[in-house]
């Protein structure tokens, strides 16, 4: 596992965005060779999306041959509801870039047969050859996507009841009315994300520092689902200083010592070094 530690939220977002940019460009996607990207929602990735949009507007990056799969969506929330993940993806990313509508996949939380919808989603991922790079974020309790503590680490896309903590935290987006907060979601499983050829998890803020500690320094546990990625062949965690508060000094120093190596991964590809 690679742990990339940046000074603050903005530089972590920028690093993550540059990494995604470089991975897509090096892959050199085309009509017969699309780049398959897994995407998260939530407050953490907003900065990364902004940067990716900027790269696109500057002409550095095209999403024409990029296929995306989102991690999750609420059950029973209208697509046009401002808190739906469809709305989130549209407002924060899709409407600003040149992705093709048929290439953007988000689980349909209003499907009549939710189980079939989850199976279909897994099928779709398989059909395009699996996910090349899955980007994720986590909750303070270490959940990845809606794989709440206690979820099976080999879980697949399925319906998941939300933890009370999550429902309470979401109430502020639904007029503080608990009855309006969705109680269930469709989510990719930990196993679904584990299948991706590469995983990048962005973790920022002091409130996520305990989860980061659990992810990096403790053993694999289904109570901290993010810890499963210790078993992934190619996983990068991008975090800011605040998120490292619970890590040992030794751990932080070790990974910080590798920053020069890490930064090679996000160099501007088209710009020749001028030294």
């Amino acid at each position: 596992m690679r742990l990339v530690i940046l000074d603050d939220y903005d530089s972590a977002s920028e690093w993550a965005a540059k990494y995604v940019r470089n991975r897509i460009k090096e892959f050199n996607p085309g009509p017969d060779k699309p780049f398959v990207l897994g995407l998260p929602t939530g407050s953490t990735p907003i900065g990364m999306y902004k940067k990716l949009i900027q790269f696109h507007k500057e002409g550095q990056l095209s999403f024409e041959h990029v296929i995306t799969f989102n991690m999750d969506e609420y059950v029973g929330l209208a697509v046009e509801h401002p808190e739906s993940y469809h709305s989130y993806m549209w407002d924060n990313f899709f409407k600003h870039i040149n992705i093709k509508p048929e290439h953007a996949h988000i689980l349909d939380g209003n499907a009549t047969d939710l189980v079939a919808e989850c199976d279909r989603f897994e099928e779709e991922i398989k059909k395009v050859g699996g996910v090349e790079l899955f980007i994720g974020g986590i909750g303070p309790d270490g959940h990845i996507a809606f794989n709440e503590p206690g979820s099976s680490l080999s879980s697949r896309t399925r319906i998941k009841s939300l933890a009370v903590d999550t429902i309470l935290a979401n109430a502020k987006f639904f007029g503080n009315d608990i009855s309006k907060v969705p109680k269930a979601a469709l989510t990719v499983g930990v196993g679904t994300v584990m299948d991706a050829r590469e995983v990048m998890i962005v973790i920022t803020g002091a409130h996520k520092s305990f989860a980061l500690y659990k992810a990096v320094e403790e053993g694999v546990s289904h109570m901290w689902t993010v810890s499963a990625f210790q078993y992934h062949k190619k996983c990068t965690i991008v975090c800011d200083e605040d998120a490292t508060l619970e890590l040992r000094v030794k751990t932080v120093k070790y990974f910080k010592g590798l920053m020069e190596v890490h930064n090679q991964l996000v160099k501007d590809l088209d710009v020749k070094e001028t030294q």
């Binding site: 697509v79 469809h86 549209w90 899709f94 409407k95 509508p101």
Partner: peptide, 10 residues
């Protein structure tokens, strides 16, 4: 509504 166009009609 471009969002509906995107997600529903693709």
């Amino acid at each position: 509504d471009p969002m509906k166009l995107f997600f529903e009609e693709k």
